[in-house]
Simulated assay, not measured.
Amino acid sequence: MTTTVAALSTPKASAHFETVELERRDLGAHDVRIEIRWAGICHTDIHQARDEWGQGIFPMTPGHEIVGVVAEVGSDVTDHRVGDRVGVGCFVDSCLECEACRDGEEQFCAQGVVQTYSSKGYDGEVTYGGYSEQVVVRDHFVVAIPDGYADDDLAGVTPLLCAGITTYAPLRRYGVGDGTKVGVIGMGGLGHVAVKIAAALGAEVSVLSRTDAKRSDGEQFGATAYHATEDESVFDDLQGHFDLLLNTVGDAVDLDAFLGTLGRGGTMVNLGAPSDSLDVGAFSLLTMRRSVAGSMVGGLPETQEMLDFCAEHGITATVEVIAADQVDDYYDKVVDGDVRYRAVIDVATIGAK
């Protein structure tokens, strides 16, 4: 027995979204049915819906930043109850048996993690994401929304299911704390959350943005310094300054210039996924023992840890709440950098007449 719900779907690459009827599976013993309230728009959704990375599965219902309320649970579910406020991020299944899964890093599952949408599950069925009235998810991949958040906060909590864990994971992995000097390259949907979390961890946070346009916002989010990199003298002034750089930009940047701002043993972590190759000179790395690394979201235990940390420190994403009929326009706005700072869909508007 399946349940039919309203959803936004794009029939082919770069096509406009349509409201369709989507079938959600009946519950298995370990499944949770969620009535979705909010669905964030991530730049990854745009890459996928426009098939810019290839291998997109159409028709496609995107959305991997999901917040809602539990409507029903399977017979063996013990951690979630009807009425609980919950979230779902980038993944909805993995083998749970390989070394990565046992270590709580399901994103690196040896059998292949199942993405929340445009992915095939182990049963061969295609997954459909959060631009929908409901979703059914294996209980392990459902996280609890902490009590510290009021219901009015939940739209801003939604992007944390991707942007939050994507930035929190490397900040924790590289030991960011009191006095650590962190540079955040770009202050868009990812970058503004990175500033907030790094500041809450006690870091001295600097924003490295192309222009001064977002200076006041950066300072409000907790940055102690803001540098407009269109002035190339910035790179000379900041030589050897940072312990850690988070590159949140989705396009290629001059890695050699930014690497020069790292001190001895410093690391630049790439969070964006530009289509072009990353080019770096060997001496940018050899000098001062610098490193370039990558980081891909985080596992389920760390996602819950991130939400608990953000709730404790009053951190939400800064969002623009939109209706379902605005999604096409907002895809263009996200690409153009015209959203401050994440767009979140009010899912109640998907089925509204």
Rank of each mutant, 00 (worst) to 15 (best):
A13G: 12
H16C: 03
F17K: 05
T19Y: 00
R25F: 08
D26K: 05
D26Q: 09
A29W: 13
A39P: 01
I41H: 08
T44R: 09
D45H: 01
D51R: 00
D51S: 09
G56S: 12
P62G: 04
I66E: 12
V67R: 13
V70P: 04
G74F: 06
D76A: 13
T78S: 15
T78W: 10
H80K: 07
R81P: 00
G83Q: 06
D84V: 02
G87Q: 01
D93R: 02
L96G: 04
L96Q: 15
L96A: 14
C98Y: 13
E99S: 09
E105I: 06
E105W: 13
E105L: 14
E106F: 05
F108H: 07
A110H: 05
T116R: 02
T116C: 02
S119M: 04
G121E: 08
D123C: 07
E125L: 14
V126Q: 12
Y131V: 08
E133S: 11
R138L: 14
V143I: 09
A144S: 14
P146W: 03
Y149C: 08
Y149H: 10
D153H: 10
V157F: 02
A163H: 04
T166E: 05
P170I: 02
P170K: 10
R172L: 14
R173S: 15
G177M: 05
G177A: 10
G179V: 09
M187V: 10
G189T: 10
V193Q: 00
A194L: 12
A194K: 09
I197S: 11
A199L: 05
L201H: 02
L201I: 06
A203V: 06
V205I: 10
L208A: 10
S209Q: 06
R210A: 01
R215S: 09
G218Q: 03
G218Y: 03
A228N: 02
A228L: 00
T229A: 01
E230I: 04
E232Y: 04
V234G: 11
L238N: 07
F242N: 07
F242Y: 15
L244N: 03
L244E: 11
L245V: 05
L246N: 06
V249A: 11
V249C: 06
G250Y: 02
L255W: 15
D256R: 07
A257Y: 03
L259N: 12
G263H: 07
R264M: 13
T267D: 05
M268V: 01
M268L: 15
V269E: 04
G272H: 08
S275F: 04
A282L: 15
M288P: 01
R290W: 08
V292Y: 00
A293H: 12
G294T: 02
M296S: 13
L300W: 12
P301D: 14
L307E: 02
A311M: 00
H313Q: 10
H313M: 02
I315Q: 03
A317I: 07
A323Q: 13
D325F: 05
Y331L: 08
D338K: 15
V344G: 05
V344C: 08
V344Q: 05
A348Q: 01
T349K: 07
